[in-house]
Design a protein around this nucleic acid. Structure first.
Length: 402
DNA sequence: AGTCCACAGGAAGGGCAGGCGA
DNA sequence: TCGCCTGCCCTTCCTGTGGACT
């Protein structure tokens, strides 16, 4: 093999014109200087938080809205500005979805206390001791402490609403500090399950974020694209991203993801610009990644059920029903040495796969021949191939000969 | 109108793992 | 370290269901 001149390879990489100027601009962690189409919501948040400038106690705020409607970015934006303006305000932002932070009451309190500069051992202390440390750390601030709990529904699902009850009652005990909470949730029905006392004190003020429409998404993308890319992006490309994301409940995060992935794909194939085709590819890739991640994360039993469904489909069987799946599933379990669950449980697993969007099922009645679920699989070929690979790696399906 | 199929899906409870306080 | 508690997964038992068939 002829010797490759590595210098040439590296130089050509360095000299290659890159598409991205700053990819981070398209990440959901980035807080822009101005946030289009959220003026009203930002004003509302600012008005509620403003009394902290005079050292007054703030109302707790509860913010709802679907993913990608700008909740977190708006709250972070106002909070940052407020913290810049007033030395008497301390903001603590916690994303409750982060693993090892909001799994238990202990971890949650320890994390907040650490953010206030006090070391707390990762384990070993009784919870009431951590509560005391947390309380002292908060009170020692001698400020208006605003605790932002993003994805607060995850927190409550994991550890219940006791912690919120205690947090909302803390103001009565604190001598020097005023504590207020901003809860952010994607789940609109989340407060229904809360203790009524928690519910009323947490949502002293409520703000609802409505989804963006396609035009608004377009403006957001234009603003970010200017900062993120070296060259101007074709308006048709932006419009396509916006339209696709608008179909999915006006999700700005999805729109930005599409643009970022399309940029990465274009850059990888050394294209000079992003074309609409790259958006299609990006959507495919995001879809593929999402489903593949979900399938990979399934427990063995769910994978066995999915394998049974796929092998029935591969055999060309139409109108697959629960009973068919169960008998194939039994065979798979036998050959894999896996414990066979009852049909009742398998029926629930099929329901879960449906909920995850991996399969489609509907309950139908066939009259004299009973009532059952009819299952279908609406996946693209490439997605099906990828899922089969994942299942083959778990020894559920035979590896394809290629 | 009554029967019957093939499940769906609710309720209750067992078993187990992991976290927690003593 | 041990017992208690909780949450999760699962089983068992059961009732409910829509429409073809008689």
């Amino acid at each position: 093999m002829p010797q490759i001149n590595l210098d040439d390879v590296f130089n050509s990489y360095l000299n290659k014109k890159t598409i991205f100027k700053n990819k981070d601009i398209l990440s959901d962690k980035y807080v822009p200087d101005t946030i289009p189409h959220r003026e009203e919501e930002i004003n509302q948040i600012a008005r509620i938080l403003a009394p902290s400038l005079r050292g007054e106690r703030l109302s707790n705020i509860f913010i709802y809205g679907k993913t990608g409607t700008g909740k977190s970015v708006c709250v972070k934006y106002v909070a940052n500005e407020l913290e810049k303006k007033a030395a008497s305000v301390k903001i603590i932002y916690i994303n409750c979805k982060m693993k090892r932070i909001s799994d238990t009451e202990y971890r949650m309190l320890a994390e907040i206390t650490r953010r206030l500069g006090i070391e707390v051992p990762a384990t070993g202390l009784p919870t009431d001791e951590v509560y005391k440390m947390f309380f002292d750390a908060i009170d020692a601030q001698n400020k208006n402490v605003i605790l932002i709990l993003d994805e607060i529904d995850t927190l409550v699902k994991k550890i219940g609403d006791d912690i919120l009850y205690n947090l909302t009652r803390m103001n009565q005990e604190l001598k020097n500090t005023k504590l207020s909470i901003i809860g952010i949730s994607n789940n609109l029905s989340f407060t229904e399950a809360l203790d009524p006392r928690v519910k009323s004190s947490l949502s002293e003020e409520e703000i609802i974020f409505t989804p963006y429409n396609a035009v608004q998404l377009q403006n957001i993308l234009v603003q970010r694209a200017k900062l993120a890319f070296n060259e101007n992006i074709d308006p048709g490309v932006i419009a396509k991203c916006a339209a696709l994301a608008a179909q999915e409940h006006g999700d700005a995060r999805k729109a930005l993801d599409l643009l970022r992935v399309a940029g990465e794909l274009a850059e990888r194939s050394s294209a000079a610009n992003i074309t609409p085709e790259y958006i299609d590819q990006a959507e495919n890739k995001l879809d593929l990644d999402r489903t593949a991640t979900v399938v990979r994360a399934q427990p063995k039993q769910s994978k066995a059920v999915l394998s049974a469904i796929i092998s029935l489909i591969e055999k060309g069987q139409e109108n697959i029903q629960t009973g068919d799946i169960f008998s194939v599933y039994e065979n798979i379990c036998r050959s894999q040495g896996l414990k066979t669950l009852t049909q009742r449980r398998v029926s629930d697993l099929i329901g879960e796969l449906d909920m995850l969007g991996i399969i489609n099922s509907k309950v139908i009645s066939k009259g004299r021949y009973g009532r059952t679920r009819e299952i279908g699989l609406h996946l693209t070929d490439s997605l099906l191939r990828q899922i089969k690979d994942i299942l083959a790696d778990s020894y559920m399906l035979q590896k394809e000969q290629s």
